[in-house]
Computed example of a mutant assay.
Amino acid sequence: MQILDGKQTSSTIQDEIAAEVAAIRSAGGKIPHLAAILVGNNPASEAYVRNKVKDCERVGFGSSLFRFDETISEEALLDKIREVNENAEIDGLIVQLPLPAHISAEKVTETLAPEKDVDGFHPVNVGRMAKNLPAYLPATPYGILELLKRYPIETSGKHCVVLGRSHIVGSPMSILMARNDNPGNCTVTLCHSRTKDLKAQTLQADILIAALGIPEFVKADMVKEGAVVIDVGITRVEDASKKSGFALRGDVAYDEVAPRCSWITPVPGGVGPMTRAALLLNTLDAAKRSFYP
């Protein structure tokens, strides 16, 4: 069993981006600028956005953070997004989820200009991804692809089983692993809450990607010997032995599953850092106008 170290790989990617930004600055080019919108004071969202700002500082990006009270109206938030769409200084925009119940995440996503949608959620980017056209990929699937590519893990001709069909991870992951690319060219099975005999499906996986949000759902008897296991989940669970009172657990029961794997991602330190690195890569592409004029 070997570790797919997302923390180290993310650090390498950030170093590469920082070097490219330094070259852009020396040539007098436009420095990439990422903006984030944060509504309310969800602690997890606060931490995530704070880390994104730190990442921007490390690689030399400009960054802006727009904070709003959770009582902001939907139309006022959409107006702010439209304002950022028109701001030529800002290359990429993310709107941190979750949003208050009175604000439609779908309306927010569709209002954001596709060329600034560095989270890769706009229908235009999703459609371009599905057609294997250049696009901003959703950050977590993009990060997983980079991790598989850089180790490298052979994917062509393999059977990939994806657990979870969310629009953020599971569904786009299944599309990306099936398309004619590297990583890719897998035979993909997408499993969800209505899948019958789930264990029979997971035992066929050469590559198992767990994105359910259910801590330690995947047990050793669900994993084929020698499989590559990617654990997307990260959930806080109570743990009296920790000073914080909680521990972070993935969707995979790591201690019992790891001995069966050829490769596995840890939690934390696996997919999470790669998601942040992928967001930076998308922002760099946005600044370079890689996909949109």
Score class of each variant (00 low, 15 high):
residue 78 L to G: 05
residue 78 L to S: 07
residue 81 I to M: 02
residue 83 E to Y: 07
residue 83 E to F: 12
residue 83 E to R: 06
residue 84 V to N: 00
residue 84 V to G: 00
residue 85 N to F: 02
residue 85 N to C: 01
residue 86 E to W: 03
residue 86 E to Y: 02
residue 87 N to P: 08
residue 89 E to W: 09
residue 91 D to E: 08
residue 92 G to V: 04
residue 93 L to E: 03
residue 93 L to R: 05
residue 94 I to C: 04
residue 94 I to T: 10
residue 94 I to H: 07
residue 95 V to F: 06
residue 96 Q to V: 14
residue 96 Q to C: 13
residue 97 L to I: 05
residue 100 P to D: 06
residue 101 A to Y: 12
residue 101 A to W: 12
residue 101 A to S: 15
residue 102 H to N: 11
residue 102 H to A: 14
residue 103 I to C: 10
residue 103 I to W: 01
residue 105 A to P: 06
residue 107 K to P: 03
residue 107 K to S: 06
residue 107 K to C: 01
residue 108 V to E: 01
residue 109 T to S: 09
residue 109 T to A: 13
residue 110 E to M: 09
residue 111 T to L: 02
residue 111 T to V: 11
residue 114 P to A: 09
residue 114 P to E: 15
residue 115 E to C: 10
residue 115 E to W: 15
residue 117 D to P: 05
residue 117 D to I: 06
residue 118 V to Y: 03
residue 118 V to Q: 02
residue 119 D to C: 01
residue 120 G to M: 02
residue 120 G to W: 02
residue 120 G to A: 09
residue 121 F to S: 00
residue 121 F to Y: 08
residue 122 H to Y: 07
residue 122 H to W: 03
residue 123 P to T: 13
residue 123 P to H: 14
residue 124 V to H: 13
residue 124 V to E: 08
residue 125 N to I: 11
residue 125 N to Y: 05
residue 126 V to F: 12
residue 130 A to D: 07
residue 130 A to E: 08
residue 130 A to I: 11
residue 131 K to F: 15
residue 131 K to S: 14
residue 132 N to R: 10
residue 133 L to Y: 13
residue 133 L to I: 11
residue 134 P to F: 08
residue 134 P to W: 03
residue 134 P to N: 07
residue 135 A to F: 05
residue 136 Y to L: 07
residue 136 Y to F: 14
residue 136 Y to I: 02
residue 137 L to A: 04
residue 139 A to S: 11
residue 139 A to C: 15
residue 144 I to D: 04
residue 146 E to T: 03
residue 147 L to Y: 00
residue 147 L to F: 01
residue 148 L to C: 05
residue 148 L to A: 00
residue 149 K to P: 04
residue 149 K to I: 00
residue 149 K to F: 05
residue 150 R to P: 01
residue 150 R to T: 02
residue 152 P to H: 13
residue 153 I to E: 11
